[in-house]
């Protein structure tokens, strides 16, 4: 398997690994603003199932997306043990509901593998690459693929 062309082979990249829908994922650390516990959200009318609602983040109104539901891995039933990862992407801030956050990984760009072209659905399209961590495989999330569906168009 070839290394992913998206990263420089020699670059050192830090990822935060997390679990969502029972699968292991990771996010580039530079996109993460903060990590907080789940708290109740205000649901939005006419939103996709994966958009749980909006939350008050120190005065900013940010949408919260259920990562597992967004990736088609089934809905998460949020409890106080669940975690919201606040990320910034394309000047938007949004929260991702995940099961748990595990650790920070430091890897070389060369260790990142390209996503094999299996099927083309949301769960694959939003994976930028794969990472082998010991015996397990972690999926690198492509945040721009996760933005809530373009409501500007729909509304």
């Amino acid at each position: 398997m070839s290394s992913s062309p998206l990263w420089d082979d020699n670059a050192t990249i830090e990822f935060v690994s997390l679990v969502s829908g029972g699968q292991s994922f990771c996010l580039e650390i530079t996109t993460i603003r903060e990590i907080r516990r789940w708290s109740a959200v205000t649901p939005l009318p006419y939103s996709e199932d994966s958009v749980l609602g909006v939350m008050n983040l120190r005065g900013a109104v940010i949408p919260i997306v259920d990562l597992a539901a967004r990736l088609g891995l089934g809905r998460t039933d949020p409890t106080a043990r669940h975690v919201i990862i606040v990320v910034a992407v394309h000047q938007r801030t949004l929260g991702l509901l995940v099961d748990s956050v595990s650790e920070i990984l430091t890897v070389k760009g060369g260790a990142i593998r390209e996503t094999p072209n299996v099927r083309s659905d949301d769960s694959i399209r939003s994976i930028r690459g794969l990472l082998q961590i010991e015996e397990e495989m972690s999926r690198i999330i492509d945040l721009s693929a996760l933005l809530p569906a373009e409501h500007e168009d729909a509304a």
Partner: peptide
């Protein structure tokens, strides 16, 4: 008034959001 459009987008029937005294968001 807190705009929703920056981070989310427009929602039919909702013009914006606000934050209430208890910190909760009201549309």
């Amino acid at each position: 008034i807190k705009s929703l459009e920056g981070n989310y987008g427009r929602i039919p029937g909702i013009s914006a959001a606000t934050i209430l005294g208890d910190g909760k968001i009201a549309l």
